[in-house]
């Protein structure tokens, strides 16, 4: 299994919501939010569609890779839900960016989506079905959170991140796991107006048990990293950057301390974006790539966790 990320891209909505803006209609404060999450601002969709963000991030990644949409022969969209339940967001992205392939699909693995999409892409590259794949993670959490619930709505933001991957001789390795537990973190689906079905509940917003998820997140990051490193005969010190799903700065710091690593090896942008679900890792990768922090030959550990309960980690060599 081997590939290289040859381009990264990112797009966020224009509207920025500060903690003070939230405290105008919620019983919360900047101090409380920063202390418990590290989050200062997040971008929230107003006039944009998710397609706008996904297409922009995709075009950004293609440009960074120095190729056009015609050079891509597969598109994977990771999203909780696109602008429509149907059609899939990937169909709209393909048309919008001018990609000819019909080999496109959406996948939903919550906040772990990028790792699962990357492993899926790797498999299609490995078997020769695709040579170059666009992965775009686009998330509109603002549609799924309860804006009256101060314990969850302060945590999330909207955004899209994309990467282009290409077959190469750069070795990669993955761990992906799910346990089927949903009570700790879920978003109920729409029931429609089926006259034969009794209504079970009215709540259609994201529900999360923060303490349970914090523990799941930290223990998953640490144990997955150790398992993957052991499997590859490596140690925690062999990793240049640990690029974690950006859910909460406290989770990132707790995992870092348990892995006994320096702060600079755990880059983060959660403070300016909040938790953007599966988009968070490709968005952070784009920040690091565009700011010149990623050097050829560096070994990166990507790690994510989320609804499912799902978790995934990946070791890749940066060889753009």
């Amino acid at each position: 299994m081997s590939f290289s990320i040859i381009g990264t891209g990112k797009s966020v909505p224009e509207h920025i919501v500060t903690n003070d803006m939230l405290s105008e209609f919620l019983d919360t404060s900047d101090e409380w939010i920063v202390e418990r999450t590290g989050i200062k601002v997040r971008h929230v969709m107003t006039s944009e569609t998710l397609l706008d963000l996904a297409a922009k991030a995709s075009e950004d990644a293609l440009k960074d890779a120095g190729i056009t949409a015609k050079d891509v022969d597969m598109i994977i969209c990771s999203t909780l839900q696109g602008d429509y339940v149907s059609p899939a967001l990937s169909c709209l992205v393909a048309e919008s960016i001018g990609c000819d392939t019909g080999f496109v699909f959406d996948m939903n693995m919550g906040c772990s989506g990028f790792i699962f999409a990357l492993e899926t892409a790797d498999s299609f590259l490995e078997c020769g079905r695709a040579r170059r794949i666009l992965i775009v993670c686009a998330e509109a959490l603002s549609r799924h959170i309860d804006w009256n619930d101060r314990s969850t709505c302060v945590l999330f933001g909207d955004g899209a991140g994309a990467v282009v991957v290409e077959k190469s001789d750069s070795k990669v390795d993955f761990i992906t796991k799910v346990n089927g537990s949903y009570e700790e973190l879920y978003i109920p689906g729409e029931e429609g107006n089926n006259p034969y079905k009794s209504k079970c509940c009215d709540v259609r917003y994201l529900k999360m048990n923060g303490r349970e998820i914090f523990k799941f997140a930290v223990s998953s990051i640490v144990s997955d990293a150790k398992e993957l490193l052991d499997k590859n005969g490596m140690t925690t010190d062999d990793i240049s950057f640990y690029i974690l799903h950006q859910a909460n700065l406290r989770i990132i710091n707790s995992a870092r301390q348990r892995l006994k690593q320096d702060e600079e090896k755990f880059p983060h942008n959660v403070e300016t974006h909040g938790n953007t679900s599966s988009a968070s890792i490709p968005m952070l990768l784009d920040d690091l790539n565009k700011s010149g922090k990623l050097k050829n030959g560096m070994t990166l550990m990507l790690s994510a966790f989320g609804a499912g309960l799902s978790r995934g980690a990946c070791i890749i060599k940066w060889s753009k």
């Binding site: 418990r36 048990n209 303490r211 914090f214 523990k215 707790s254």
Partner: peptide, 23 residues
């Protein structure tokens, strides 16, 4: 300690004493 500190403390206790503590 805030609520996340207590979660971290509990994780530390689990490692130290080999017990499992439900959240």
């Amino acid at each position: 300690l805030d609520s996340l500190d207590t979660v971290e403390l509990i994780m530390g206790i689990e490692d130290e004493f080999g017990v499992t503590i439900e959240m």
